[in-house]
Design a binder for these strands. Sequence first.
DNA 1: CTGAAAGCGCTTACAG
DNA 2: CTGAAAGCGCTTACAG
Lengths: 371, 371
Amino acid sequence: MTRVIGLALGNELCHHQDMITMSEVARRAGVARSTVSHVLSARHGGNVRIPEATRQRVLQAARELGYRPNALARSVRTGKSRMIGYLVDDPRYEPYWNTIIGALGEAEREGFTLKLLSVTDETLEQRIEQCIELRLSGLIVRVSQDKRPLFEEADRAGIPVVTVDESDPQPFGLRVAADDALGIREALAHLAGLGHHRIAFISSGFHRQRDPQRTPPREAMFRAEMAARGLDVPEGRVTYETMLVYGREAGIGLGASTVLAATDALLEHPDGRPTAIFCWRDETALVALRACRLQGLRVPEDISVVGFSDIIAARLSDPPLTTCQSPWEEMGRTAMRRLIHAQGEEFNPSPRAILIPSGLAVRQSSGPNPE
Amino acid sequence: MTRVIGLALGNELCHHQDMITMSEVARRAGVARSTVSHVLSARHGGNVRIPEATRQRVLQAARELGYRPNALARSVRTGKSRMIGYLVDDPRYEPYWNTIIGALGEAEREGFTLKLLSVTDETLEQRIEQCIELRLSGLIVRVSQDKRPLFEEADRAGIPVVTVDESDPQPFGLRVAADDALGIREALAHLAGLGHHRIAFISSGFHRQRDPQRTPPREAMFRAEMAARGLDVPEGRVTYETMLVYGREAGIGLGASTVLAATDALLEHPDGRPTAIFCWRDETALVALRACRLQGLRVPEDISVVGFSDIIAARLSDPPLTTCQSPWEEMGRTAMRRLIHAQGEEFNPSPRAILIPSGLAVRQSSGPNPE
DNA sequence: CTGAAAGCGCTTACAG
DNA sequence: CTGAAAGCGCTTACAG
């Protein structure tokens, strides 16, 4: 009724509540609701064949009325929402962002839809419940806390989960990660090829805060690769930093940054100044680059600096930063693809991890060993 | 039935299809479905008061069964999806990303959920239909094409729309944008305070490609502010660039970049080299900074460089970039807040635009006029 | 206070 | 080929 009035007065008064329903299309076309459903969902699989004339009548009625199927109702009925949830705890971090973009593109290609959910330590549980209540068809997760409860809950609800950029093996779901070791190997090969052997590393102080017993993953790979090349990593040639890049407490300024100290400590190493500094992330490398210049060193003439991630800032810096490239978007695409292909069947991925090769972007912050 | 088997064999076999339903909770608690609904939706507004004992019985049954309400079914019933759609055509662009993050945070605070949709010239129409079919409760749009069809469609479906970072006034919905003029005014006050008067501008070649008749918005503001300060902008002191920053064809390298040419042209201006270069975006400013150095100029000792946006790279550059700060996250929050507050009523915002003040982050790329 | 009933908009066997 | 019926999981007047 309201709709009729709305139409009479013009489109301005047509509200959400007034959406055309399938029954109205059926009435207009003079057929049953089920026929409309058949025509519009175009399921040519079933042995339902609607004569062209009827089909056209339905289509036209739908067009004339401006009918828009209610995807929600369809989901309730079919039990498939075709929505994938993406849980992130640090959406501001550019690499995670890129991963989301990859996942989004793939979802849209496949007619799925992406729901973005941010997570903090306090809200993880609540978000998972929300995902279950929304009957999501899958979950991509990039969260740095214990994910066991997540997996258990999601598993109970039959929601497949894939984690992204998680370095630890996990006993559930699927893990899609970059093979950081590859990029690190390439970077060291690059530096060694330039004649460097005193290569220092600035590592993540965050990983250490979380678990002091364990070597941060990229640092471990660095050490392993150095060892494989027969290069020494004496005490003190690895330092740590905990610079906050995003949000209110961001401490990028050199004054507040712990990168300055981490770099200075390397430059003053008793066994001699390193000729190259490799950093666990680009943000660190860029500030380290500044720190080197403050000490009067030219990059790359006097010292080489290499980062990890290939964020936009790496390309925009002066000189542009040589850095390891993780395939962020590809990780997102892969995660999404796997989730979509798992629809309708038990999610028992094998293998339980997909490692996507990382590479190296050689730019101008690395040069020959000056010695 | 399946569920019973599932339970018998352990959680591994519990599938999505086996989600507990409200009827089962009712059966277990020995009450009617409607009672369960009343208890769980906790609508204390209606004059429905369930005795504590019954309430507890229902709650316990729900807990024991691991009941999770089906948000989709609820949405179908109530007609409110509490999902907001976010349409972006360039999600890789850091500022847009930040706007999304602001919107996401606000949505979650209010118990709404965010659906991300990317848009190209070809897919806009299709995406809008999708939004309508999903019965979204609102739409935030950051798209640089003609949005009239979008507004018409959404309006017909009763979906409120707010655009974000759109400089042109529009006859529909709400527009949330940054007041770029404020930041530009502050930047010029800052530069003038440092004694600069030969101030150049590198403007957007993209805007010009789209509409050659019109001065790009920030350039127009720059010219207006310069005029207001009585400062001359002779022919040739504004140049244009079209550097692609994102995606496959990104041409950030100085060789491929048009920023190099735009900067060089300014440095060779017949009326004398500018002592400050103001750029329409940070990416441009960072490359211009490199271009200046390539010409043997020191920043900020010989020449000042100022950007616009305050992307992460601006803080990480050497020297850190002085730049106008648009309130990206706040724009997202505001857009989302307005959408949420418009729920249930006609969306007839007044005024039709909200401008959020931009500011200036003074860093080390700007210094006193050396002359 | 509680429950039986109608209904949201759709899909899907199942008869005709 | 087409339609009447049952049902997805929920909410919401409306009686009792």
